[in-house]
Amino acid sequence: MDASLNIAVAAEFELCEKIAETLEQSELAIGKLSIVEIYPFDEEQGVRFNNKSVVQCSLEQVEWSEINYLFFAGDVEQLTSVAIAAESGCVIIDMKGVCAALSDVPVVVPTINESDLVELRQRNIVSLPDPQVSQLALAISPLLQTTNITQIFTTSLLPASYQNGETVNKLAGQTARLLNGIPLDDEEKRLAFDVYPQKTMALSAQFQKIFPQCNSVIFHAVQVPVFYGMAQKVTALWDYETEFQPQDNELIQYHDMNITPVINGERESGETQVKLHINPLSAVENGIEFWTVADEQRFNLAHLSVRLLEAIYHQGY
């Protein structure tokens, strides 16, 4: 394979670092990696790839026709630039499902529905769904191969990193202040030692793009005072009794003990293979329930996005 791929990343600094680390471990031969600063980096922040500093540039400086693939982890306000890049022939990997609502943009989770990548020809854009959706999809996929699920309920416990790096810094600052007896300002939104509900707009629609047969899936989400790592409690119901024998695979590891995203994230730090972790499955009436955890930055975003790029490349797009 020629080392001719020109890849760009448009994301926050911490996520750019994780994508670069994951790309180093991939089998893709990459000629050039660059950073598109849709979010400004601090002066001391710099990404390295294969022991070399990665070039950083602004949106206005990018020659999209020279870039083969773009990892995009921005928001709706930046979609105009994404459209320009796609029209120039650059294939866009929308990492957070921002484009997922567009009818001609496929929503793909690696190992589940990679055949849908054929739709890439329409816009040069593919969406990896929101991390809540990809985590649930991977956990549910083995069940769907043996059962006819009628309803799915999931509650996601969202860490500060699910929002952005600024939220992580706010949580750290608030935690330190409160532990030192310094009260927060009255108008300041409290993150430390508190929880509150989050809206889950369009997540069911993203899930049904992956599994059209699942027409009853409900997402709930709660913001929790954890820095990194997302957990989900999942209940799946069906019309008749069935047996399911869980088996580990390249993306999933089942456990016979209680697991937390914090502990598993620490254990996986620096490893070449991060996974989605699922604790013991418990039977309920006409169904099953279980608990899943993953490092939503390193696994749900960086690892799955690079796996998606590998699938795109090997299918010739």
Rank of each mutant, 00 (worst) to 15 (best):
S88I: 08
K96H: 08
N124I: 09
F71Y: 12
Q145Y: 08
V98F: 05
Q151V: 11
Q132A: 14
A86Y: 03
V105Y: 08
A160F: 05
E63R: 12
V105G: 12
L102V: 13
P142N: 07
G97A: 10
E87W: 05
I93N: 14
A86Q: 03
V168C: 15
L120A: 07
T154Y: 09
S81Y: 02
T154K: 04
Q163K: 09
N50K: 14
Q78E: 06
S88M: 07
Q135W: 03
A86P: 10
N164M: 11
T147M: 05
D94P: 13
V91E: 05
V109S: 01
P131K: 03
A100T: 03
S115C: 00
L102S: 09
Q151M: 14
I93A: 12
V126F: 00
D75Q: 05
K52E: 10
L157P: 00
P110S: 14
N113Y: 12
E166D: 14
V55I: 13
P142K: 03
S134L: 07
L136Y: 07
R121G: 15
I92K: 01
F41L: 11
A73W: 00
G89D: 13
L144Y: 05
V54C: 13
W64G: 01
Q61R: 02
E43K: 07
D104I: 09
V47F: 03
G46N: 14
Q45G: 08
T147S: 13
A100D: 01
Q151H: 11
E60T: 00
P131A: 08
A85C: 12
F41R: 01
L70A: 06
L79E: 11
